[in-house]
Design a protein around this nucleic acid. Structure first.
Lengths: 173, 173
DNA sequence: GAAACCATGTAACACGTTACATGATTTG
DNA sequence: CAAATCATGTAACGTGTTACATGGTTTC
């Protein structure tokens, strides 16, 4: 049940067309909730049907840009969702599963793949740190954007964890 | 494409019935790849249809226990999957999304929810540490079960990350 | 023999992924 | 006007979730 709420959040930050939303789901929001344009158009249709968002623009079908904005009912819906208790989901990671499979098969040629993942996590960490440097410089007082910074730090610390863990794993290899 | 491979891995570790598999997906394997019994039965049917596993036992339909074991073709299929390159998925976390939504809504009553999550992560960390104490005592030489221990340590370190991050978040609150 | 539990399954739906289709606008 | 790009959409399928259905075995 997260995608519609992710879209409402993104539209509250800035009213957008479907394609603009898609681009933002490749960057900022997408860092912790990704979605393809197909998912986004489908969900925008539903949200409009429920009266939670409103489209303006030429309107008719294909090729015509439509801009969506959140209606009061949509804001209310999002507020309810934010207030609900939701348990954290257990870890779901194919790499850990592959290690377990490798263990039972007696395979040990995973070093290259681990190194490749380390490189990808290193790059992602660098990107997050660059964003932090740009958007959260130390001199800026943190009151209004405290929550945004916390979210970014979660990303930074998670990538740091993977880097450290993969280093550890490769040492043993 | 992970569930069938998770099942093949579990069945290689120990041939089982659907219900036994379900129980193991609530514990060990489930710590990083969970599944419900409905998913498991559906997938066992497919794996049998593809000739990757074999069922023995009374056989006919409801209420009759069937035991599944992996066939050579299944082992080969798993080996191929383990060897494939697969990129890590970006983070997908509803809690981070909720923080971002709270930021744009101007809501700040998330302290209780953060504290609740901290307690859940604390409990999970304790469980992992207990498993480590039991299954990987320091005196035991680590050669054969090195991979299993690495996977467990990923779980431990991830839970530790969440605990530290939530502490940090609650301090600021 | 009723209740609890073991065991396997169906159905419907929500969500995510991949491939493809179509129209409008800009740029060389 | 051809190509590239912007923009919206359909279709099909795989996976995950929730609710419900059915039969067999043990235990009181």
């Amino acid at each position: 049940m997260s995608l519609p709420h992710a879209i409402l959040t993104a539209l509250l930050e800035k009213p957008s067309s479907g394609l603009e939303l898609t681009r933002r789901f490749d960057r900022s929001i997408g860092f912790f909730w990704s979605a393809t344009h197909q998912q986004i158009y489908r969900e925008l249709g539903r949200l409009e049907g429920e009266g939670l968002v409103r489209a303006s623009g030429p309107g008719a079908g294909r090729g015509q840009r439509k801009e969506y904005e959140v209606l009061p009912a949509g804001r209310e819906r999002l507020r309810e969702w934010v207030g609900q208790a939701q348990d954290p989901k257990p870890i779901r990671d194919p790499l850990l599963l592959r290690l377990r499979a490798a263990a039972v098969l007696g395979v040990d040629g995973l070093g290259e793949e681990l190194a490749r993942h380390r490189e990808l996590h290193r790059a992602q960490l660098a990107e997050y740190l660059e964003i932090e440097r740009r958007d959260f410089p130390p001199e800026r007082a943190e009151t209004e954007n405290r929550l945004q910074h916390m979210v970014l730090q979660a990303g930074i610390q998670l990538e740091s964890f993977w880097l450290a863990w993969l280093d550890q794993a490769l040492e043993q290899d």
